[in-house]
Computed example of a mutant assay.
Amino acid sequence: SAQREAALLTTFNEIDMSNVMDLRNQYKDAFLNKYGIKLGFMSFFVKAVLDGMNQVPQIAAQMRGNELVYRNYYDIGVAVGGGKGLVVPVLRNVERMSFAEIELAIADFAKKAKDNKIGLEQLEGGCFTITNGGVYGSLLSTPIVNPPQSGVLGMHGIFERPIALNGQVVIRPMMYVALTYDHRVVDGREAVTFLRRVKEVIEDPTRMLMEI
Rank of each mutant, 00 (worst) to 15 (best):
N33A: 15
K34G: 03
K34Y: 02
K34F: 01
K34R: 14
K34V: 01
L39H: 11
L39D: 13
M42D: 09
S43R: 09
S43F: 12
F44V: 07
K47T: 04
A48C: 09
D51G: 03
D51L: 00
G52P: 09
G52C: 06
G52V: 04
G52L: 08
N54M: 11
N54W: 02
Q55W: 02
Q55L: 12
Q55Y: 08
P57R: 12
Q58G: 04
I59Y: 00
I59W: 04
A60T: 01
A60G: 14
A60L: 00
Q62C: 02
M63Y: 03
G65P: 02
N66A: 11
N66P: 00
N66M: 02
E67Q: 14
E67Y: 03
L68A: 00
L68P: 06
L68R: 06
L68S: 04
V69P: 00
N72E: 15
Y73D: 09
Y74E: 05
V78H: 03
V78Y: 00
G82F: 04
G83A: 15
G83H: 10
K84Y: 07
K84F: 06
L86R: 07
V87W: 12
V88I: 15
V88H: 08
V90H: 06
V90E: 08
L91S: 06
L91M: 06
L91I: 08
L91Q: 07
R92A: 06
R92S: 09
V94A: 04
M97L: 15
S98D: 07
E101Y: 04
L104E: 11
L104R: 14
A105N: 12
A105P: 01
A107K: 14
D108T: 11
F109H: 03
F109P: 09
A110M: 08
K112F: 07
K117S: 13
K117L: 11
I118F: 04
I118C: 09
